[in-house]
Amino acid sequence: MTSLTKQILDRARVILVAMVAAFVGSAFAQGNLEINTPTIAALKQSMQQRHAALAPHYSSGAVGLAADGTIALRDASGVPMAQRGQVNALVAAENGDRAALYREIARANGHPEWEADVRATFARRWIDRAQPGWWVQGTGGWARK
């Protein structure tokens, strides 16, 4: 195979991958993130109920909104030592619900393979909607909004 042929094939491969990515992206863009199912409703309700317990930790900066759509115990120093485990359990439970929510929304759209896209979109959405003073994770690391 000549180097010119190889270059042409490489270029064609790149174009093909880009086209597939664009197609998948545009397909996901048509997905319904607001879709509602009983499971989604139950998950949202569960997260809503937990929010009251998490909100003070968002405000204090103990818990932040991570770039991957989860939340993280990023600075526990303001939480009494004996309660850090409980906050950790809250964070784990919330992340469990969030992971289930992303999967369920992708499934409800009939495309389980969209889970990563749903997660990424929700990650941006959580961060956009975070209250001023909450800690969010961006490309440069953690920052106070």
Binding site: A62, R74, D75, A76, S77, G78, V79, M81, R84
Partner: peptide
């Protein structure tokens, strides 16, 4: 001691 993120600490 306390790490900067408070995830490893003692009092």
């Amino acid at each position: 001691f306390a790490s900067a993120d408070g995830l490893r600490a003692a009092e």
